[in-house]
């Protein structure tokens, strides 16, 4: 990605608009440091027992389904891999553990709440926005339903209510933004988790905790906190005893996903410089071409026909 951006800027430079690319390069250095004040959740998958109580809590909190708690004890759902749906903001999947077959790995999935979310950058009306506390939230009132956010998300998280004819919504984890806005409020899944699996807190503190855990038990943990750098960093962070690719985590580089498009956007259209230049050039061409053709009669003829 980084390579792509550099190549694009080089390309711009070749196009003799060096000044534009310089201003773009300056703009791109906006770092994600300020995001460290945001909150997130650390998921220690080595602690997860696959009880699916987080699914239950989430479904109840967001009124997605009203299945009773007992129904979540059904382990047959683990036989096929499930993924997020318009009525499932979080799902737990089971993966075989090649080292110890009796101890499969359970992984909870939901929106990772990126620090520089592609969905929010893609949304043309600002319906998706990253809040200061780290949650990436959705405002259905603004949404046009173009689903560009779904195209943009590298984790394929947002789901759509295709069956709703009049008021379909983009659906995904909200990080329980309304609950956590209150003092001491926890996301529903975190509150419900009976294990030591989900920890809610400041992202910077969660990262420290994650590395502490890895350092304290390097035999158990993979030396990788998923979400620390992926896509420029995410609010949800994962620890695992197995390589993340084995657990169907996607390999995503450290470059924030929207960098390339935003660089293109803001370098070409900065202050409308390039379009205005083009406008001026074409105006000059028009003038020269017309005078060159002795535009005495034709000027009026043109104004009528064009």
């Amino acid at each position: 990605m980084d390579l792509n951006r550099r190549r694009f800027l080089q390309f711009l430079g070749m196009g003799a608009v060096g000044t534009v690319s310089v201003s773009a390069a300056a703009a791109e250095s906006s770092s994600l440091e300020d995001a460290s004040g945001g909150y997130g959740v650390l998921v220690d998958t080595t602690e997860c027992i696959g009880c699916r109580k987080c699914e239950y809590a989430c479904n109840r909190e967001h009124r997605l389904t009203d299945l009773p708690l007992e129904r979540y004890e059904d382990t047959s759902v683990f036989e096929t891999e499930r993924w997020l749906q318009a009525n499932a903001y979080t799902v737990v999947n089971r993966f075989p553990n090649p080292e110890d077959e009796a101890k499969p790995v359970f992984v909870k999935s939901q929106c990772l709440h990126c620090l520089d979310p592609a969905c929010a950058s893609a949304c043309l009306v600002g319906a998706l926005q990253r809040q200061e506390n780290g949650a990436v939230t959705y405002d259905a009132w603004k949404c046009m339903g173009c689903r560009y956010c779904m195209v943009a998300c590298p984790f394929q998280v947002p789901a759509y209510e295709y069956d709703n004819a009049l008021t379909p919504q983009v659906r995904k984890c909200t990080l329980c933004a309304t609950r956590t806005a209150q003092e001491g409020g926890l996301p529903a899944c975190v509150e419900m988790c009976p294990q030591n699996c989900l920890t809610y807190g400041k992202r910077s503190e969660l990262l420290a905790l994650a590395h502490e855990k890895i350092d304290g038990n390097p035999e158990l943990y993979e030396d990788h906190v998923y979400g620390e750098t992926e896509a420029g960093g995410t609010s949800w962070l994962y620890l695992a005893a197995r390589p993340f690719t084995e657990l169907k985590f996607q390999e995503i580089g450290p470059e924030p996903i929207p960098r390339l498009t935003e660089t293109i956007q803001h370098s070409i259209f900065k202050f409308g410089a390039l379009p205005l230049m083009l406008y001026g050039m074409l105006g000059a061409v028009m003038r020269i071409a017309r005078s060159g053709h002795g535009g005495h009669v034709e000027t009026t003829a043109e104004e009528e026909v064009s």
Partner: peptide
């Protein structure tokens, strides 16, 4: 568009989102 009746939203200044290519 899922919410086709909101097609005018990008023209409304409070909803402008200049980072979006689609905008």
């Amino acid at each position: 568009l899922g919410r086709y009746y909101n097609i005018w939203h990008p023209a409304w200044p409070t909803m402008w989102q200049g980072n979006s290519v689609l905008f």
